[in-house]
Amino acid sequence: MNIQEAKFEYLLRLGDSSLIIGHRLSEWCGHGPILEEDIALINIALDFVGNATSILAYAGQTEGNGRDEDALAYLRSEREFRNLLITEQPNGDYANTIARQFLFDTYMFFLYEELKNSKDETLAAIAVKSHKEITYHLRHTTEWMYRLGDGTAESHERLQNGLNDLWMFTPEMFDMDEVDALLIKEGIVPDLNKVKASWEKRVKEVIAEATLKLPETTFKQKGSREGKHSEHLGFLLAEMQYVHRSFPDSNW
């Protein structure tokens, strides 16, 4: 594997995670618990789709086979997607969505904070823009962690359940392989151990402040690096891609 191939692979991991979690958030559109939240969730989904578009466009250029962001988003199948498993998990109730967003947004916040210093200028520029957005997203989801965790008995229980259910998907966020090793050496991407330390510290603080318990699950779900996903992704892609695929070679 050369640097270019590693970079393409890494960009797919970033772009796909944003695309898929943005898709999940957009499913809330019109069904949120209160109008203000509908607006916030759509806004966050929009940021994720925007981030995915920039990153996948850059991935296409990096690959150099003439695939643009739409070709990558719409014309790859389940096994070719590299998004983290946590991003494809269904919304569940609002607490479950908030738990998923909090765990992922915190990860993205610290990861992109590092990516701002990437020696790859394009990636660094995307990271600067995205980091501003993620800072806002994370503030939003963290506030909801407090509200639901320390709100009513019901909201507390729902959020704790959400956290417990999603916890097994979190170690995968910090898995590193040959791709990471190559790019770390070039100063293009950070060592995820560093991101992990910041993530763990922040997550523990917020969970405590929200009067919740740190989940005890040590079981680990992984596979996205090799395109091994949960069953949920296939349905998601079927919905996302069918119009585009039904009209091959069309402009939209």
Binding site: L19, S26, E27, I39, T53, E239, M240, F247, W252
Partner: peptide
């Protein structure tokens, strides 16, 4: 139709509209 929009650009525009 947000989840089914046929391009990423159209998806973003539709999200912004509904927002």
């Amino acid at each position: 139709w947000i989840t089914r929009a046929p391009s990423l650009r159209r998806k973003a525009i539709l999200l912004a509209k509904v927002q």
